[in-house]
Simulated assay, not measured.
Amino acid sequence: MSDKPRIQAVAFDLDGLMFNTEHVFFLSGDALLQRRGKEMTEEILKGMMGRRAMEGFEHLSSHLHEPEDPHELWVESQEIFHSLLHQHLKPMHGLFELLDYLDELEIPKCVATSSPRAYLEMLLEQFDLTHRFPITLTAEDVTHGKPHPEIYLTAAEKLKVDPKQMLVLEDSEAGTKSGAASGAYVVSIPHEYSDYGDFSAANLVANTLADPVLLALFTDRHA
């Protein structure tokens, strides 16, 4: 686990890794639950993070006094989420610096997210990042959601690298397990909404996308 990998490509998660959407999601999820006399808890959030929308809202529904249709909960949550997005959305620290560094090294990259494609495209367009990710994978592109390894195995195939030569950047327990199960080298970057998770499957745990421990993985990568 400690051996330095020969990184030939990088797969980025989206929510909580590239942007602080988990913060906005927490706010919208809490507002959704408060309408039902409950509040967001660590248990509920942990069961939703890193998973596809319907899987996450099935989990949320199971914690209500009376379970509701996951799709209807998702629609209501999206309305709240988008009302908060403009005010609260920010890129995570070090994102643009890391992207510039990867471009300088000519290391191909992709986004591999459990979120829907329309949502991904909206975020990338908002920060003028669409052209920097010619390869993107979303919930619609896989049969099995994280922590199943399908999305990262597909990412390695699209990037034309062996999974062992691909770096996966994740912020959640489910995503970390997905990357590890694919055989990729996983660096987890937990934040305040995910740091209670189990990151033992990660090869490294970093503080930010600008962490020197992360950047050092690209030094002499062809050695």
Rank of each mutant, 00 (worst) to 15 (best):
C110H: 07
V111C: 09
H71G: 05
K109F: 01
E76A: 13
E72P: 00
L73I: 06
Q78L: 11
D100A: 14
V75G: 02
L84D: 09
L124I: 08
H93R: 13
D103W: 00
W74H: 15
K109V: 03
K90A: 11
C110Y: 04
C110N: 15
E121L: 12
L84Q: 15
C110V: 06
C110P: 01
M122C: 05
V75Q: 13
F96W: 05
L73W: 00
G94K: 01
Y119K: 15
E76P: 05
H88F: 02
I80S: 03
P108E: 01
F96R: 13
P116M: 02
S114K: 08
D103A: 08
T113N: 04
R117E: 02
S83Q: 12
Q87K: 08
T113K: 10
Q126M: 11
K109L: 01
Q126R: 14
L102E: 07
L129Y: 12
H71C: 02
E79V: 07
M92H: 09
P108S: 04
E121A: 08
R117F: 02
L89H: 10
Q78T: 08
L105I: 02
M122W: 05
P70E: 10
F127N: 12
L85F: 05
I80W: 05
L98S: 14
L105V: 03
P91E: 06
E121C: 08
Q87C: 00
I107D: 01
L129S: 03
S114L: 09
Y101S: 00
M122F: 08
L73P: 01
A112D: 00
V75C: 02
E104P: 03
L98K: 15
E121T: 07
S114R: 15
A112M: 00
L129E: 02
H88V: 03
G94H: 07
K109Y: 00
P108Q: 04
E72G: 02
L99I: 15
D103I: 06
F81R: 07
H88L: 05
T113L: 09
K90D: 08
L95K: 05
F127M: 15
Q78W: 04
E125M: 12
Y101V: 01
K109S: 04
S83W: 02
D100Q: 15
S115C: 11
L84N: 09
W74G: 08
Q126A: 04
D100W: 03
H88E: 12
S114Q: 10
Q126S: 14
P108K: 03
I107Y: 02
H71R: 14
Y119R: 15
A118D: 09
S114E: 11
L120W: 06
A112T: 14
A118K: 15
L99N: 02
H82D: 06
D103T: 07
F96Y: 11
L102H: 05
